[in-house]
Nucleic acid binder design. Structure first.
Lengths: 213, 213
DNA sequence: GCGTGGTTCAATCGATCGTTTAAAATGCTT
DNA sequence: AAGCATTTTAAACGATCGATTGAACCACGC
């Protein structure tokens, strides 16, 4: 039932989904939801919570990252490929395959924040950001904390944007449909673009540091 | 009335807004909307259309851009400052000040595309993308059409992301509130980051071109 | 076999949704 | 001022919403 709820909430949003639709898809009675959860809002919160708990486990396995000490020992090329993997993981999380409700639900929470948003940020966004920060700080050691944040934002922003633009990407790229290699191509581009951006930020920070000295 | 409708649709979305709320805010009868427009969907489409028509005029004045020939003659520094102005314009359009319904409505259209989305893309996104492309192609002449598109995406994506993350930005940056200089700071960072990214893409494209020769 | 606690069901509740109706109000021409 | 078309209004329509009810159902210990 929570699965059916997740799909529908992702597809049509909270206000656009009725508990009757959920019950129909889950093949149960409309009253079952109220019996177990209490209200529509609680169904939503439970569905999202379950959805992201399952995801958390998956990401923990796939996204295993070297410890800070190991990170110190890695070559620049290794760090860069780590960055690419991280970006690709985020892209796959948001876009798929397989197509999952996470991306859409998160996008909707940005429009209409509910009680679920802080949980999603805490459990998912911040950990991923922390990983990204560790990588970026190795590539650009001169960056201050605020600048590191902004660089991470610039990368995650690109990833999210592709998710957000999914419905009109063919329209924008003037293509009939997205190619199968879309995620790989996009991860490749974002990584290259970001590496250039990070290098530029590093140069700027180093120059500022020299000017201050 | 269309103004009240725009605000509410931006605030609560199409499914979350009732025509009674609209009528109340506009201080008219609920039937007035149906008399003039026919249905709730038509009210929405008209409101969005009017909203973006007004914006179009504003952006046409503010975003005046040199012709392609003029662009050829400009120095690199001038091109770069043009890029920063373009990025700042997009940020202000989406985030404000003043806080306008455009950004939120567009974000919602990405979740639930309606008949209004193609219009918004055609009238607003594509023209802005064209401008950006002209600037980027001056900065990175070796880039192919697809790569140019991707670089534009990487920039617009960052801009949109800051809009999308608005409700949780303080949470992410660990700040009580956003500073007054937020838009300016962000435009500055995105421009610097993007210039680095564009330079990296240019180097990659040039290297590929040499390898092919 | 029978009662008991937990669960599901069809049926229904009042509220609210988008929409319609017909009368009242308004503006404009003559 | 009268006549007519346009606009606004209060009231109501059927449909559907989230939520509730009480009976039916099921598994289990005795």
């Amino acid at each position: 039932m929570l699965e059916a709820a997740s799909e529908l909430f992702a597809e049509r949003g909270f206000a656009g989904t009725t508990i009757r639709e959920i019950a129909q898809r889950a093949k149960v009675n409309v009253a079952t939801g109220h019996y177990h959860f209490g209200s529509k809002l609680e169904i939503y919160l439970e569905a999202v919570s379950a959805q992201f708990a399952a995801l958390d486990a998956r990401l923990a396995v796939e996204g295993a990252q070297p410890s800070p000490e190991d990170l110190e020992r890695l070559s620049r090329a290794a760090i860069e490929s780590l960055l690419e993997r991280q970006i690709r993981t985020m892209l796959e999380f948001l876009i798929g395959p397989p197509p999952a409700p996470h991306g859409a639900i998160m996008q909707r929470e940005m429009c209409d924040p509910s009680e679920a948003l802080p949980m999603m940020v805490r459990e998912l966004v911040l950990p991923q950001k922390r990983k990204l920060r560790a990588i970026v700080s190795r590539l650009a050691p001169s960056l201050g904390s605020r600048e590191l944040d902004r660089c991470c934002f610039s990368m995650v922003g690109q990833v999210f944007f592709f998710r957000q633009m999914l419905p009109i990407l063919p329209l924008l790229f003037d293509l009939p449909a997205l190619p199968a290699s879309f995620v790989a191509d996009t991860a490749d581009h974002i990584t290259a673009f970001a590496l250039g951006g990070i290098a530029a930020a590093e140069r700027r920070a180093a120059a500022r540091r020299r000017a201050r000295a």
